[in-house]
Computed example of a mutant assay.
Amino acid sequence: MSTVNELYQDVSGKQKDEYRDYLAIIDRMDWHNYDYTTWPCADLSFQDLEEGEDYDLWPFKPNLNEPHWVDLNNQFKSGIRRYGYVHKLEMPEQVRELSHENATEILNDIKNLKDSDLSEFNDQIQEYGFSDENHFLWGIALLDSAEEKAYDAADNLLKEQKAKLDAQMDAHIEAAEAGGLLDPINGIDMETWAAANAKIAGGMDLEEVLKVVGTEKPIWDEVSAEWTARMSQDTTFAISKVYGDAFMNSNIGKFANAENNQESETGSSAGNNDIYEDFELYVKVMCHQNMGATQGKDAASILQEYGLTVTDWSSVGMHWTTKMATDTRMALKMGELMEKYNAEFASAKAGDDIDF
């Protein structure tokens, strides 16, 4: 039989003519007696490898329906999944007969028994066909992995659909531009009109907005009426998309300068950046507003408690809505967080005595 040194050669990047002799050695290998646990670079002397690293890969993985050290080192680098892979563990039949949801719930209930009733814990894992605790923990990890793969598949589908819709909308916007539907009205383009409306919604005085835009109220009223008419007649929603993007990012064009940025003047944006990174904070503020509305409290005043303006909140909402559109986990988490904070604010009368 061939020696380890003969069998393990890195021929990556070489032409076949350069390793014909090596191919002959591989062909003579007795794969029926192949044992991945004794193969070079299987690294079974230690169980955990660094997750961020790629480990030695043999360029000729045999086509065998059994564990292989290539997968062991680069698919299961650490943890209980690696342990299960090494020991060729299988999910007990008692668990395979259950639905994924029921199996996950039952196994996690059993897991919670360990700290409170070790004897019952051991009885339960045996009842469900597990040989020992490691086998049981591997089973939970396998269910979790399957769930993650399902979420990833759903997210990928959502991303594909979103990419198609985005491409379609881009085409509609190009057509609108070519057809003159986005041409300025009395010198005021769509982005400027949208940004101006965002500033007004955020509390900026109309007279100040008109000064920035460089127009007077009669002209502004005509422009607003015409842009509104164009949007209402646009069945592709291209104009509405351009408007929405500019409204959510209103510090553009004539409103880009710091002296014209109301948030900079008032300081209302101070401290609101966290909400773009903290999904739970976003849901908390949303629930605070919802519960406050049922109790007659002003939504804008609630936003002020978090250092936010109405315009800020519109931008934040668009930010998280876009993320949730391609993240099923986030959408599910939102339901859990809403239940938590709706109960909290309801009991505290929409924030009374709540520590922000």
Rank of each mutant, 00 (worst) to 15 (best):
K211C: 03
V212Q: 02
V212A: 00
V213F: 00
G214V: 09
T215S: 04
T215R: 06
E216H: 14
K217R: 08
K217D: 07
K217S: 06
P218A: 00
W220I: 06
W220Q: 01
E222Y: 00
V223S: 07
S224L: 01
A225Y: 01
E226M: 04
E226K: 06
W227T: 00
W227C: 01
W227D: 03
T228L: 12
T228G: 12
A229W: 07
A229T: 03
R230L: 00
M231S: 04
S232T: 02
S232P: 00
Q233F: 01
T235I: 11
T235V: 11
T236W: 01
A238F: 05
A238H: 05
I239Q: 07
I239H: 09
I239F: 11
S240Y: 15
K241T: 15
V242K: 09
V242E: 08
Y243Q: 04
G244F: 13
G244R: 13
D245G: 13
A246D: 10
A246M: 10
F247A: 12
M248Q: 13
M248C: 14
M248R: 14
M248V: 13
N249H: 14
N249P: 10
N249V: 10
S250F: 14
I252F: 09
I252Y: 10
G253R: 09
G253K: 11
F255S: 06
F255G: 09
F255W: 09
F255N: 12
A256L: 08
A256S: 13
N257R: 15
N257Q: 14
